[in-house]
Nucleic acid binder design. Structure first.
Length: 423
RNA sequence: AGAGAGGUGUCCGAGUGGUUUAAGGAGCACGCUUGGAAAGCGUGUAUACGGCAACGUAUCGGGGGUUCGAAUCCCUUCCUCUCUGCCA
């Protein structure tokens, strides 16, 4: 969420930056400032009257103690008058605050200066690429055929149990998932991240704090009986650890990693784009999250990008890193780098990680602050990234490591899987 | 799931309608004292909003109510603990 004080001081800059994100209602900036002016005015007169009520009430107490009942009763009457004035003020103030809040949550985060202009994925900027394209055997197949051939994943039975997009992993396929999770977590903790295993459902307050609510309501599964939401990513529960918390500056940076299943309704496209493991409703992911000093977030973002890159290199997959343009970025992000892995058999790039700096957008929304050396309270910055999302890594490894007689494994995974080859 | 007990500041903890301006203690910070340390003494020690400021307003788990006045009374909700039940 953007801060009114910032919008007030940077009215034109904010509008310019919102335009980069293709935000359709620049005038909302003015609306918000007007509403805030109104709120201030209302509060001033409310506070003034309330102060009169408070001091008169105290006076009544003193008069009663003295036994001056007559004067006490007279004071009660004037208090009654003031309270009548208070009622409409209170209502109006509550309404203005709701309006202000409703307007504020509509703003996406402002883009970082490095964010390229552009509207669609084609306008994302290639930062660098690495890895080598594999030489696939003749008759190389896409992962949806390979997993069937080797009985690693059964979509039909998953659909029978739950619905489409809920894959059932079997045998070596299931074990491979477990090996990947274990490897990713170990890789992250070795780099200093603390491992968490969070709840997989969150309440509405948590979903609001990380920006899933109110605008992305339909993308989450909702357990209505208890009003819990199934998490779309571990970012939600883990970042919320620090909701309404004032940290000490010395505690920063906080580095967390967590495995979780991710649940996404993903109302969307059909066909090749979503075939096999390319897009599913439930998938496994290991996430990295940092809460840092605002001065450090640019630097930390780069560190996180390098961290994820090293992980991809260790898997021997051909990859590229893109800096997303304003039109392709997430709502809450100030700057995002996407990692894509080349699926040789599908002949297309698959997004496997997205690393973002949210700056103070989430932390303001969830009141995650820290006390600096001077004793001043400031909002921290939050960042997160996948390291990594499993299904597409699974797909890419199965495709890129296929041989004529089976599927090989990257060296780094062999000890985790307990064999040199997947098949 | 049923019954009961609770939720107060950084922490412990007092507080059943009015100098509570939340006692007292601990911790922490600063100062005094000291050769140095401990002890002792003194001062300070939540957040948000409004205001140039003085200061004001709100907050005793959350929300609502009663009252001139609520940490205190009522309703509601969440959470924790104990016992019982159920369960991997």
């Amino acid at each position: 969420m953007l801060q009114v004080s910032f919008l007030r001081q940077n009215r034109d800059l904010a509008k310019k930056k919102l335009a980069i994100k293709h935000f359709a209602q620049p005038d909302l900036v003015d609306t918000v400032i007007d509403l805030d002016d109104e709120r201030k005015q209302l509060q001033a007169s409310f506070d003034e009257t309330q102060a009169k009520v408070n001091s008169a009430s105290k006076e009544i107490g003193a008069l009663m103690a003295k036994g001056d009942k007559e004067k006490a009763e007279a004071t009660k009457i004037s208090v009654g008058e003031w309270k009548k004035q208070l009622e409409p003020l209170k209502e109006k103030m509550a309404q203005v605050e709701i309006d202000l809040q409703n307007a504020l949550v509509q703003f996406p985060n402002l883009p970082h200066d490095l964010v390229p202009l552009g509207k669609s994925p084609e306008e994302n900027v290639l930062v660098r690429e690495g890895g080598v394209l594999p030489k696939l055997p003749a008759g190389a197949e896409a992962h949806w055929d390979l997993i069937k051939k080797y009985n690693l994943v059964d979509f039909e039975t998953g659909a029978k149990i739950t619905g489409s997009g809920f894959p059932l992993y079997i045998g070596k396929g299931a074990k491979f998932q477990r090996a990947l999770v274990q490897y990713f977590l170990d890789f992250n903790t070795a780099a200093g991240y603390t491992e968490y295993l969070p709840p997989f459902m969150v309440n509405a307050a948590s979903a609001f704090a990380t920006g899933q609510l109110p605008d992305k309501e339909g993308q989450m599964y909702h357990a209505t009986e208890d009003d819990f939401y199934l998490i779309p990513t571990a970012e939600v529960p883990v970042t919320n650890i620090f909701r309404d918390v004032v940290l000490k500056e010395a505690e920063l940076p906080l580095q967390m990693t967590a495995y979780s299943p991710c649940f996404r309704r993903e109302a969307g496209s059909f066909g090749k784009e979503v075939r096999g493991l390319n897009r599913v409703h439930q998938f496994e992911k290991v996430e990295i999250i940092q809460i840092v000093h605002p001065n450090k977030s640019d630097e930390v973002l780069n560190e996180m990008v390098v961290h994820v890159e090293k992980l991809l290199v260790s898997l021997g997959l051909p990859y590229r890193i893109l800096r997303l343009c304003g039109g392709d970025m997430g709502f809450a992000s100030a700057i995002t780098y996407d990692f894509e892995v080349y699926s040789a058999a599908q002949e297309r790039w698959l997004e496997v990680s997205s690393v973002s700096n949210f700056e103070s957008y989430q932390t303001y929304r969830m009141k995650c602050r820290f006390k600096d050396a001077a004793g001043k309270i400031q909002f921290a910055h939050s960042l997160n990234g996948s390291s990594l999302a499993l299904p597409r890594i699974f797909a890419a490894i199965v495709e890129n490591y296929q041989t004529e007689s089976g599927i090989a494994l990257p060296k780094a995974l062999q000890s985790y899987f307990g064999a040199e080859n997947l098949i």
